[in-house]
Design a protein around this nucleic acid. Structure first.
Lengths: 186, 186
DNA sequence: TATTTTAATGAACACATGTTCAATACATAA
DNA sequence: TTATGTATTGAACATGTGTTCATTAAAATA
C-alpha cells in the first residue's frame, strides 16, 4: 500500500473528512464504520485496507495533536518539570493551554466508552518529555521509569479532573493549582 | 426486574461463569455477547434484559474488587496519604499488594482496547480515599478536587508503569519506589 | 396447592462487522 | 501515450448487534 499513491491520499482524505463531519453530529462510539464509508463514498472493504477499527482513523488526528504538544510546548513545560518550584511562574506552564486549544478532542479522549489507546498516547508523550528533563538527575534508588510515570500521570490527573468539571476553570486557575500543588509540602 | 427473583439470580450467575470461562481463553475485546450467551445457555435477548454491553457484565466483578480495595486497604493506605514521609514504612503501603492480588483483572483494566470505564472506577476509588484523608488539611488556595486528582492519578501512574513491565518488580520494590518518590525533594 | 405475576425464550427483523475474490478503474513509469 | 501495477470496487457470505413480540416456563403470593 503506497502512501503516496494519489488514490490512497484521496481515500484517506475522504475518510478523514467523513469522520470529522460525523463527529460534529454525534460521539465516536455511536458512529459505525459503514456510516463513515457511506459519508466518504468509499467502499467498506477499502476502509479495512487502511484501518482495522474506526479508532485507528481517529488516532491519525490524535497523533497530530500529540505532535503539537511535543513541539510547541516542550520548552515552557520544561519550566515545570525542572522543579524549581519556588521560582516557578504559573504563566510558563503551557500544557493546559494546549488542552484547552484541543478541548473537543480531549472530550473524546476522556469519554468513558472510548478505548484506553488515546490515554496511553497522551501519557507516553508527557512521560517522554519528563524523562528527557529528569535524565540529568541521577538520584540513587529512584527509578526513572516509575518517577516519570508518577509525575506524568499526576499531571493527567489534574486534566482529568478539569475534564470532569467540563473545563469550566480558566487556564490560569489550572496553572495556579499546579504550582500550588508542586510547592505544597505536607 | 426483581434482583432477588431466583430466575434472575440463576441467569446472572450463568453469565458470570460464562464470562470467566471465556476470559481464561481470550481477551475481553474478542469475546462476543452471542458467545457469552451460548456458553451460558442463556437467550441473547435475556442478556440485553440485564446489561447493555459485555463491559457492564465485567463491571460487576470489578465493583467487588473495588470494594476489596476500599475495605481491606483503607487503614494502611492512609499511612501513605498522611504524608508523614520521613516516618513512612514501605511495608505499610498495601495498595500494590491489592493490585498484585488481582493482577489478572488489572491486566484487562489496563489493556489498550478496553473502554476507560474501569480506569475511572479505579481512579474514583483512590481519589475518594484520598479526599477523606486530605479533608482535614485546609490549605488556602489548594483545591481538594485537583489535589486529590493529582495524587490519586500519580499512584495509578506507578501502577500503569508496573503493568507495562508486566508486573515483574516485587511489591516491596514498588513500595520502596513510592516512598522514595514521596520523600524526594528536587 | 392454585393462581397470579413476570422472567426467559425463540423467532424474526434491519443493520453492522470482517473477510474474500474477481472485475475494474486509475496512477505511475516506460 | 501506452503498458504495467495496484488501489478500489461490488458482491457475497457467515456472524454479531440491538430490538420487538407473542409464547412459555417458572418463580412469588394468596
Amino acid at each position: 500500500m503506497n502512501r503516496n499513491d494519489l488514490r490512497v491520499v484521496k481515500t484517506k482524505q475522504a475518510l478523514h473528512n467523513a469522520l470529522l463531519t460525523l463527529l460534529s453530529e454525534k460521539p465516536l462510539e455511536s458512529i459505525s464504520i459503514a456510516e463513515i464509508c457511506r459519508e466518504a463514498k468509499v467502499n467498506r472493504g477499502t476502509f479495512y485496507l487502511h484501518y482495522e477499527q474506526k479508532e485507528k482513523l481517529f488516532e491519525e488526528y490524535f497523533q497530530e495533536i500529540m505532535a503539537d504538544l511535543n513541539n510547541s510546548y516542550e520548552e515552557p513545560y520544561r519550566a515545570v518539570t525542572n522543579f524549581n518550584k519556588d521560582e516557578l511562574d504559573p504563566n510558563t506552564v503551557r500544557i493546559f493551554h494546549h488542552i484547552e486549544r484541543f478541548k473537543m478532542f480531549y472530550r473524546i479522549v476522556f469519554s468513558k466508552n472510548v478505548p484506553l489507546t488515546y490515554y496511553y498516547m497522551l501519557f507516553d508523550e508527557i512521560q517522554a518529555l519528563l524523562k528527557r528533563d529528569l535524565a540529568q538527575n541521577k538520584n540513587t534508588g529512584l527509578s526513572l521509569d516509575f518517577y516519570s510515570a508518577y509525575q506524568a500521570n499526576a499531571i493527567i490527573g489534574i486534566i482529568l479532573e478539569w475534564y470532569r468539571h467540563d473545563f469550566t476553570e480558566s487556564v490560569s486557575t489550572l496553572n495556579e493549582q499546579l504550582v500550588t500543588i508542586l510547592k505544597f509540602k505536607p
